[in-house]
Write a protein that binds this DNA or RNA. Sequence first.
DNA 1: CGGCGCCCTTTACAAAGTAAGCCAGGCACG
DNA 2: CGTGCCTGGCTTACTTTGTAAAGGGCGCCG
Lengths: 194, 194
Amino acid sequence: MPAKRPPIPLSRERIIEAALHIADGQGLRRLTMRRLGDALQVEAMAIYHHIPGGKEALLDALAEHVTTVTVEDGAGGSWQDLARAWARACRAALLAHPGVLALAMTRPPRGRAAAALREHIDRLGDAGLPDPAGALRTIRAYVMGSVAIEVQRSGWNGEAAESADEAVAAFERGLDAVIAGLAAGLPPGAGGRT
Amino acid sequence: MPAKRPPIPLSRERIIEAALHIADGQGLRRLTMRRLGDALQVEAMAIYHHIPGGKEALLDALAEHVTTVTVEDGAGGSWQDLARAWARACRAALLAHPGVLALAMTRPPRGRAAAALREHIDRLGDAGLPDPAGALRTIRAYVMGSVAIEVQRSGWNGEAAESADEAVAAFERGLDAVIAGLAAGLPPGAGGRT
DNA sequence: CGGCGCCCTTTACAAAGTAAGCCAGGCACG
DNA sequence: CGTGCCTGGCTTACTTTGTAAAGGGCGCCG
């Protein structure tokens, strides 16, 4: 009896969710088509009907999923507040799936992720920040690097792993410095509320 | 006649060098034991005699090699100068081997890399910077993220790839902001020359 | 009720990691 | 000069992975 119909039909969403679960739990190295199929109660080949392009496309999708960050429209904040909120959201999104961090840092933002990025740049510009693209680049660099360092430490048995509180504190301290440094580079008087 | 002695005997250094070359040229995905063997004019299994631990150990070694950064002892600079020099050296080292960037960001620093890091922290402290570990963490985060973004862009056919000059300029602008922000967070008067 | 199309399965094959064991050449020692 | 061990590479073989190709059940529409 070859064709047993699975209870829930497969879908791109379910596949991505399961893939994230495996990658987070056992590492990217162990994320294989067959294992993914097992997790979904399906044969590996079934995945190809929902993710054309095979594993490479799947990894792209994971990266996009984890780097698509939006902050709700807290209208009326300074660009500093906006940038801070975005940085925290971005950190949270990346930290939620440490297994695919390497993908997120390696693949350029595309599709929804790139769109969200552009939209945030516009919002920073609207909030009065000159050169919002350059500034966001700096902030994004800091956030991505911070998360990388945090993940390194947590998967680390040498010396003492830091607590979550310590990690947040370190992140916030650095974020303060970065934003203060960006503000200091501005012509005096630039960047008030909208 | 099975055993042809290769002209140059294999060595750990040669293996790592060849592996970096492959990873940079064709991507981590295509770095395989057999290909590495071919590049070294040797069968794949010969590698295991020099890198015990197999591929995982090889990847660790690559990460360590690319994250081991030292700056010559420019004695007498401010901590800002020291930090700037280290950041530039670190960027250069990572950018020199974009293929293994994912490894460098994922694996915690160990061995020589960790030692070099600790030594640099000490030097920053000697130069008068309070909390050098926290500051270096911020700088390291910024540098790692910056390089990740640069590599993303260069392996990118969408829109316009940026020139090397533009990349350096963006990096330096962000670095200025980060260092200025760190300096601003200090108690007034701290951090003169030694 | 017959055919069509959608999803999933089966089968099959190339490529990769690596364990086990073999063999050649060189060195030490008699 | 003979002999045996040791170093370092080779051969073989097995398991796991990605994926192309073809097959088969099931519902839906005419």
